[in-house]
Simulated scan of single mutants.
Amino acid sequence: MEQFVRSVTTPRPVPLTPDILLHTADDMITLWERTGAPEPPFWAFPWAGGQALARHVLDHPGLVAGRRVLDIASGSGLVAVAAARAGGHVTANDIDPTAIAAITLNARANDVTVTITTGDLLDTTPDVDVLLAGDVFYDRDMAARFESFLLAAHHRGTLVLVGDPQRSFLPHGWTRVDAFPVPVPPDLEGVALKTTTVWRPAP
Rank of each mutant, 00 (worst) to 15 (best):
W47D: 08
D178V: 12
W47R: 06
P165I: 04
H172P: 01
G36F: 05
G77Q: 05
S148C: 09
I20V: 15
M1E: 04
G163C: 11
F149R: 07
A44C: 15
N106S: 07
Q166P: 00
V177I: 15
L70A: 00
L132N: 08
Q51L: 08
R167V: 09
T91P: 01
V14A: 11
D111W: 10
P18M: 12
G49V: 02
P165W: 09
H89M: 03
L132D: 02
L16W: 04
S74E: 03
P186F: 07
S168I: 01
Q3I: 03
L31K: 11
F149I: 09
M1W: 09
I116V: 13
T17D: 04
S76K: 14
A73C: 13
D141P: 03
T98M: 15
G173I: 04
V57R: 02
R108Q: 07
W174F: 01
P15M: 07
I20G: 06
L131I: 11
P11D: 10
T195I: 14
V130T: 13
T10F: 12
D141R: 10
H56P: 05
V182A: 13
T195L: 15
T91F: 00
R55H: 15
N106H: 02
F137S: 05
I72G: 00
T175D: 15
P40E: 02
W32G: 05
L161V: 07
P97H: 12
